[in-house]
């Protein structure tokens, strides 16, 4: 008889538990449905030379990173030193997807800050970006030897993210044949 009067309290406590847990979550980080799916195909002109093209197919057999960047993107500067370190250590090939940028500005940006990329390809109209579900720059995809997306990092890549997530995952994927 008396138990029914406890129902509102119980419901509220459950709700409060969720709200408390919700405080630790980032409501704006949207996980990609593309993880564990084949990376969407593209074949785009490289930034270095408009007449040479590079595509997902060319990277087959390698574990590699696809980093979405742009010269207008402020946070890309934040992750840039981390990418430079990755490139220096020659961990995996790092392909840049130059997203909705202009060629001169992108080239100038790389000249000014250094070019960590094995190659950058040009996605001027953002179409490939849509295929990859890009909604904010920078974003980074880890792709395995079979061309399957294994991980997506949203936002600037940090040293912690490299050490704790990317490198272990890369090691694991490289071991797998």
């Amino acid at each position: 008889m008396k138990a029914k009067f406890l129902v509102p309290l119980a419901l509220f406590l459950v709700l409060a538990g969720f709200l408390g847990y919700g405080l630790q979550l980032n409501p704006r980080e949207v996980p990609s449905p593309l993880v564990d799916k084949p990376a969407p195909q593209f074949r785009l002109a490289t930034l270095a030379a408009a007449d040479t093209a590079l595509g997902v197919a060319d990277m087959r057999g390698e574990v590699w990173l696809l980093n979405v960047w742009a010269s207008w993107c402020v946070s890309c500067r934040e992750e840039h030193p981390v990418l430079m370190e990755l490139a220096r250590d020659k961990v995996v090939p790092l392909v840049g997807l130059n997203y909705k940028d202009t060629r001169p500005e992108a080239i100038a940006w790389l000249e000014a800050h250094g070019d960590p990329y094995t190659a950058s390809v040009v996605d001027a109209d953002g179409r490939v970006g849509i295929d990859y579900g890009v909604y904010g720059v920078p974003e980074t995809f880890l792709i395995d030897r079979q061309g399957v997306i294994r991980y997506k990092h949203i936002g600037p890549v940090t040293r912690e993210a490299v050490r704790d997530v990317l490198l272990p995952k890369i090691a694991e994927l490289s071991r797998a044949s």
Binding site: R28, E29, C73, S75, K100, G136, V137, I154, P156
Partner: peptide, 19 residues
């Protein structure tokens, strides 16, 4: 790091050009 400092709107010039 919950405030999403890395979200950037493209410069409106680019969008206007596309439009």
């Amino acid at each position: 790091m919950r405030a999403s400092s890395f979200r950037h709107l493209l410069p409106s010039a680019v969008s206007a050009a596309l439009f």
